[in-house]
């Protein structure tokens, strides 16, 4: 038996042999092989991918959860992202002095300075 080296890369033959003897199966090797092979046909009839069954069981709850999440997201998006409609008065109110209202409501063609002023006010 070799000295104990931390994280030795090589198997210990003496310890390995002792453990092997301690764990050696009692019964006949051939009997075990025959026992496994007796189940060969049955094993081949098992579903190859039982995961599909698991996924199938989650299908309906998954669809319901996805629909609920979609509706909640839709409502949230409409509530948060859509700006509240402004009244026509608010839209037409000048920010300062003569502006968009004067331009729109004037009977005569606008003066160039008014147009210019309204553009400057918008920016």
């Amino acid at each position: 038996m070799r000295d104990t080296q931390p994280f030795d890369h090589r198997p210990d033959p003496e310890l390995g042999a002792a453990l092997r003897a301690a764990l050696e199966p009692r019964d006949d090797h051939a009997a075990f092989v025959a026992r496994v092979m007796a189940q060969y046909e049955r094993a081949q009839t098992l579903p190859p991918i039982p995961t599909l069954d698991v996924l199938a069981s989650w299908f309906r709850p998954g669809i319901a959860a996805a629909a609920a999440a979609f509706i909640a997201g839709l409502l949230f998006g409409r509530g948060v992202l859509t700006p509240a409609p402004a009244s026509i008065e608010a839209a037409m109110a000048p920010v300062e002095g003569t502006g968009l209202a004067a331009l729109v409501t004037a009977q005569d063609p606008p003066d160039a300075s008014v147009v210019f002023a309204s553009l400057v006010e918008q920016h």
């Binding site: 764990l23 050696e24 199966p25 009692r26």
Partner: peptide, 24 residues
């Protein structure tokens, strides 16, 4: 691989009969 599988299963389970069932 039968012998190896039975030993490994026995290392986990201890009981040889349980180990053979697990190896199978």
């Amino acid at each position: 691989y039968a012998a190896q599988a039975r030993r490994v299963a026995r290392a986990v389970l201890g009981d040889p009969d349980d180990a053979d069932d697990a190896a199978q």
